[in-house]
Amino acid sequence: MGDMIQTDVGGIWVERRGEGPDVLLVAGLSDPAEAWQAQLDGLSDRYRVTAYDNRGTGRTPLPEGPMSVPGMAEDAAAVLRALEIPAAHVMGFSGGSCIAQELALGHPRLVRSLVLMSTFARTDAYFRAMTGFWHWMAERAPDERAMLEAFFLWIYTPRAHADGTVDRIVEETLAFPYPQSVEAFQRQLEPFRTHDTLDRLSEITAPTLVLAGELDIAAPQRLGREVAERIPGARFEVLPGEAHQPFQEVPDTFNARVDAFWREVRARELRVES
């Protein structure tokens, strides 16, 4: 069930499902909580899964003034506090993985473990050129459908374009009753373009799994590998044949992988406790 909750930083729309150890899902650019539908459905038999709309996405209003990744991490911390979650397995993808990095750095006690999907710690020239194109494409595309069809070339596999998956996602996005405005897309994009935690990642203490899609052109695996190399003890894995959002394209495989990681974290905690 979804609900607008009041936090100490304002109202934030939250979806919660299931019972068990707490999992916080942090979405990326433009994606509302529903982007995690396959995890809300597929993991809630074992976990209490919480997803939320970032500011300027879905039902959470766009703030006044410039946005920042540390500011969005404060929103994530506020969600955990408002829901009285002392610590959660935090999973973020793309821009949401940047938010998750800042959350782990700024509020380490709230982060039981980290899964960083399609992640990066510092943007490069290719990334800045790509996202610069996205910025003006949102404004100048002939219509929303054309914008989505172009944008999704960076997001999903050729397989998903061929088998109708992307067509379905386009239709679902167009039918979503809380569309993101061009202004919100652009303002949310900017802080991710300048995200830089590279020299601070060594301070992260949470057990970390970094996942990259073999075919991801939006956040190429070289960027994820760089993140894993900087976080002490982090594990880096490439998902063969996958692109930017495998949690949507191959949810059963993805859910099984993160579930296995969280079980490992629990086993490690038990060994420490004993």
Results as ranks from 00 to 15, higher is better:
Val14His: 05
Val14Thr: 01
Glu15Ser: 13
Arg16Ala: 15
Arg16Gly: 13
Arg17Thr: 09
Arg17Trp: 11
Arg17Glu: 15
Gly18Trp: 06
Glu19Pro: 02
Glu19Gln: 15
Gly20Ile: 05
Gly20Ala: 01
Pro21Ser: 11
Pro21Gly: 00
Val23Glu: 06
Leu24Gln: 02
Leu24His: 07
Ala27Gly: 15
Gly28Arg: 06
Gly28Ser: 07
Leu29Trp: 15
Leu29Arg: 07
Ser30Phe: 14
Ser30Asp: 05
Ser30Gly: 15
Pro32Trp: 06
Pro32Val: 09
Ala33Leu: 10
Ala33Lys: 07
Glu34Ala: 13
Glu34Gly: 12
Ala35Cys: 10
Trp36Cys: 03
Trp36Ser: 00
Trp36Gly: 01
Trp36Tyr: 12
Trp36Asn: 02
Trp36Pro: 05
Gln37Pro: 00
Ala38Phe: 15
Ala38Val: 09
Ala38Glu: 15
Ala38Gly: 09
Gln39Phe: 11
Leu40Ile: 04
Asp41Leu: 12
Asp41Lys: 10
Asp41Trp: 05
Gly42His: 14
Gly42Tyr: 14
Leu43His: 07
Leu43Trp: 13
Leu43Asp: 04
Leu43Glu: 01
Ser44Trp: 08
Arg46Val: 02
Arg48Ala: 13
Arg48Met: 03
Val49Asp: 09
Thr50Asp: 09
Thr50Glu: 05
Ala51Ile: 04
Ala51Lys: 06
Tyr52Asp: 00
Asp53Thr: 00
Asn54Trp: 00
Arg55Ala: 13
Thr57Leu: 06
Thr57Tyr: 08
Gly58Pro: 05
Arg59Gln: 13
Arg59Glu: 01
Thr60Gln: 08
Thr60His: 08
Thr60Tyr: 11
Pro61Asp: 08
Leu62Phe: 04
Pro63Ala: 01
Glu64Ala: 14
Glu64Arg: 14
Glu64Thr: 10
Pro66Val: 07
Pro66Gly: 08
Pro66Asp: 14
Met67Glu: 06
Ser68Phe: 03
Ser68Gln: 00
Val69Tyr: 00
Val69Gln: 00
Val69Ala: 00
Pro70Asn: 10
Met72Leu: 15
Ala73Gly: 10
Glu74Pro: 01
Asp75Gly: 10
Asp75Thr: 02
Ala76Gly: 10
Ala76Ile: 12
Ala77Ile: 09
Ala77Met: 06
Ala77Glu: 12
Ala78Asp: 00
Ala78Ser: 11
Ala78Trp: 02
Val79Asp: 03
Val79Asn: 05
Val79Gly: 04
Arg81Met: 02
Ala82Asn: 00
Ala82Cys: 02
Leu83Pro: 06
Ile85Arg: 08
Ala87His: 14
Ala87Glu: 14
Ala88Tyr: 12
Val90Gln: 05
Val90His: 06
Met91Leu: 15
Met91His: 12
Met91Gly: 04
Met91Ser: 12
Gly92Asp: 02
Phe93Ala: 15
Ser94Val: 11
Gly95Lys: 09
Gly96Gln: 05
Ser97Asn: 11
Ser97Cys: 10
Cys98Arg: 13
Ile99His: 08
Ile99Thr: 14
Ala100His: 10
Ala100Glu: 08
Gln101Tyr: 14
Glu102Thr: 03
Glu102Cys: 13
Glu102Val: 03
Glu102Arg: 13
Glu102Gln: 14
Ala104Leu: 12
Leu105Gly: 05
Leu105Pro: 06
Leu105Phe: 08
Gly106Pro: 09
His107Lys: 11
Pro108Trp: 12
Arg109Asn: 13
Leu110Gly: 04
